[in-house]
Amino acid sequence: MSVANIQVSETPQVLYALRRADDALILGHRLSEWCGHAPMLEEDMALSNIALDLIGQARELYTYAAKIEGKDNDEDKLAYLRDVRQYRNLLLVEQPNGDCAQTLVRQFFYSAFADLYWRAMMNSRDATLAAIAAKSEKESAYHLRHASEWIIRLGDGTEESHARAQAAIDYLWAFSGEMFAVDAGERSLIHAGIAIDPEGLRDRWLNTVTGVIGEATLTLPQNDWMQQGGRVGRHSEHLGHLLSELQSMQRTFPGLTW
């Protein structure tokens, strides 16, 4: 039996679902790494909760991507049998957990976007995406509230927590721009009313981020150079290690049911 990667026919619609599924899975996986190791029991449960929401979103999106692709792929093949160059997630979500500040700033940047994104996607002409959006929007609203409260606590907490939160912002800021990028394929879906234009969310996202960061007595970096590449499979070095762990069972024992 072979452990070869699957091939995916990345039509604009398949790719669109796959990219969002990969975002949710990779971020959910990262958060699940905290399980049993968080700074307090309440936070251990909260991070696991968010991870579970995201893994749930990923499963729905993968299942939908497999369905519109119409071959014999399924959620597990899409998650476990594509390599680093076939993954389509944002660079932001694959960044390591680092300390708690880095995890929460990463979550904050993402959730501040996801909250707006899923709410807008509830009006998608694609009924499945609209349904996934309706469920994800409720979850994202809670994720954003949770992360925002922590950014404020850390920023306006102690000298050490302030410095750590600021360092996390400085490190992760360059990965925030990719959330607003659109390629030609996605542009066609936007015209068809299936996808929404993320550019339209940028001001509100920045408004939320600036508000929370200001209340936290933190600042956004001046550097506006943004890293990109995740959407076309040009990742950071971190993703390969994550995937080798995530996929180890399916790669070692190919083709079995678990």
């Binding site: 899975l25 996986h29 699940s32 790494e33 399980c35 049993g36 029991l41 251990d44 449960m45 696991s48 909760n49 991870a51 579970l52 893994i55 749930g56 990923a58 499963r59 993968y62 959620e75 597990d76 998650a79 476990y80 762990e245 995530l246 180890s248 069972m249 399916q250 024992f253 079995l256 678990w258």
Partner: peptide, 20 residues
């Protein structure tokens, strides 16, 4: 982080969360 399917991953994470 190594559960063999997404269903098992979610179930295990939820289980360990229950223990917490």
């Amino acid at each position: 982080t190594r559960a063999p399917s997404l269903r098992r991953k979610a179930a295990l994470l939820a289980k360990v969360q229950d223990e917490c």
